[in-house]
Design a protein around this nucleic acid. Structure first.
Lengths: 194, 194
DNA sequence: CTTTTTTAGTTAGCCACCTAACTATCTGCT
DNA sequence: AGCAGATAGTTAGGTGGCTAACTAAAAAAG
């Protein structure tokens, strides 16, 4: 449960009320914003609860998935196929980058994964600064056993939406993601108006 | 940044590929799921960054908003109006409930808010187990100064969507929220299929 | 009127996120 | 060759989430 947001979303009339006090308040934008965070949080915590039953956190699971993705690529790379991702992350720095966390955070995650016997750190023979992180066989079994339930949860979450609605949702979310990225890459003009 | 999720979303072909290995993988559901978490995370972190410029976290901000909502209600309650919320939370337990965190977490948040001079704890005269949490004048100014920028961010995030699209988004998210709540309230049937 | 149970809040300890500072190594410039 | 700067990873310390165990007070049971 990452967010900490209002559990009960405000009613639309309240937003209209608020817009009288704050002219900056765009009611429909605010409503969409709150619903997005609320739904994201709830969906997140549903999958998190499932993962927790297998005594693993979202963060550690993401690391396992990234590494597992890499091994899948290697093992099935007899032919020149699988162009899904360029290489597959191996070092802590690559993993941190792929997962969108800092290297310090990744150090901590790998620490606990290694303590639990799911990954191993191996020094890079060429560059002694670097480490290579590898899944243990135990982790591969673990992930393979975990994924079916994980995918079932996703399917159930999205069950009420038709294929068309899913596509619509994805395209709307993509637009929002783009505008968020623009806001991110444009640090100025924050408290000042446009 | 709560999530720790893949920064680059997998391409749809990869999901189709994965569905061959895992029959439980519903590609369009998975795509919608990943986009939802990704967009939610990004939007969250955009607003978080804005709040951080005012040296406050999302969690503390939520607490301030809940309390501020209450005070607004009281001060303008000369007439019998504002039915937006029944009462407005005042005690740590009510705040925790409204914010969707545990009481222990709320204790920590109030601790830091009190340390920063934004709230005060006052003992309840009737029930000596209870505390009443109040905003300081400093906090009221702080929130009032913060909100315009906060609302502007929301408006910019949602700028690419038309009013119709926003309504569509809200209705799709509401459906997902409902199915998430059903999954939450139905603890069994997790790893087992339906 | 005691005793038990429930409730409000806190404390303690874990995890995962962050930033900043540090060590070790490699790279590049002169 | 030798040193400055870049890079990989870790460490240290802070925050905000959690659960579980605790204290104090109120409510319920006898």
């Amino acid at each position: 449960m990452p967010l900490l947001l209002l559990k009960d979303l405000p009613r639309y009339e309240c937003l209209l009320e608020g817009a009288k006090v704050f002219p900056e308040l765009d009611p429909s934008a605010c409503e969409a914003y709150l619903h997005l965070l609320r739904a994201g949080d709830e969906v997140f915590s549903v999958t998190e609860r499932n993962l927790a039953e297998h005594t693993i956190s979202q963060g550690r699971f993401s690391v396992l998935m990234l590494l597992w993705n890499s091994t899948q690529r290697r093992t099935s790379a007899g032919e020149a196929v699988e162009p899904c991702r360029p290489a597959g992350p191996r070092t802590p720095a690559e993993l941190a980058d792929a997962a969108g966390v800092t290297r310090a955070t990744m150090t901590g995650l790998i620490d606990t994964l290694e303590r639990d016997g799911l990954v191993r750190r191996e020094p890079d023979p060429d560059d002694r600064r670097m480490m290579s992180v590898r899944l243990t066989p135990k982790a591969e079994d673990f992930v393979a056993a975990l994924l079916p339930a994980h995918f079932r949860i996703m399917a159930r979450l999205m069950a009420p939406l038709s294929e068309t609605e899913r596509k619509t949702l994805v395209s709307l979310l993509t637009k929002i993601l783009q505008s968020a990225n623009e806001l991110t890459s444009t640090p100025p003009a924050l408290s000042a108006s446009s």
